[in-house]
Design a protein around this nucleic acid. Structure first.
Length: 218
DNA sequence: CCCTGATTCGC
DNA sequence: GCGAATCAGG
């Protein structure tokens, strides 16, 4: 891979947006974060000037509606409401952005769809929760979390690392604990299961195998 | 441990 | 110019 004009452009943009070198490298592909950092220095833009503002250091202590741990700048926000359009999932972009607008934005927007809770600031209420919204379709009645797993969860909550929003990574359990409207709020933070957003215990309550009732038929 | 960016230096 | 290895931190 070489530093084509386009790639350099992406690099510059992301760097000024505050993205980390590793994230940029991941986005570009074919390069390591070292390569990115090296290039950044050669380009003489090690000093992140250009788009200062608030790098997102402190995430509102008691303000729930704030959430953007890693980075999530690409948020154009349509700001247009369809009054007579009862059709939800209908992007219906009358004008396709054919021009090489920002192919990156699309990727950035669709990356990491696994942790809506933290991203939206809406904390899943235990019991009614359906984190990633995928598994457990055939739930008989109310999700009956087995008392064992429920107990283990409480156990885990005690041992949780109690990490903050900014400390969440792709390898930390993102299970929210406590009331986000108070200081009594934190994230589990225990090592998450490979590929999943939660630790073993929380994956257990989040993704029910749809048949964990004690009636082990057979 | 995980992760940052900064620097060096052979290529 | 490039980037792996290394360094220096959080």
């Amino acid at each position: 891979m070489s530093w084509t004009d386009e790639r350099v452009e992406t690099l510059k943009r992301m760097w000024s947006e505050g993205q980390s070198a590793s994230q940029i490298a991941k986005e570009l592909g074919g390069v390591t974060r070292n390569a990115v950092i090296g290039k950044v220095h050669r380009l003489g833009l090690s000093n992140r000037s250009g788009a200062e503002g608030a790098p997102a250091e402190t995430a509102a202590p008691a303000a729930p509606a704030q959430a953007a741990p890693p980075v999530e700048p690409p948020r154009p926000a349509p700001a247009e409401e369809e009054a007579a359009a009862p059709s939800p999932a209908a992007p219906a972009p009358s004008d396709a952005p054919e021009e090489a607008a920002d192919p990156e934005i699309v990727e950035a927007a669709e990356e990491e769809e696994a942790e809506p809770a933290a991203a939206t600031g809406v904390v899943p209420l235990r019991r009614t929760i359906v984190p990633a919204g995928q598994p457990l379709p055939p739930q008989p009645s109310a999700n009956e979390i087995s008392p064992e797993t429920l107990a283990s969860v409480r156990e885990v909550e005690k041992k949780a690392r109690k990490i903050s929003l900014m400390e969440l990574t792709e390898r930390t359990c993102k299970w929210p604990i406590g009331d986000p409207a108070t200081d009594d709020f934190w994230f589990c933070g225990l090592p998450a299961q490979a590929g999943k957003p939660y630790c073993e215990a929380h994956v257990g309550v989040a993704f029910q195998p749809m048949s964990s009732r004690r009636d082990r038929r057979r």
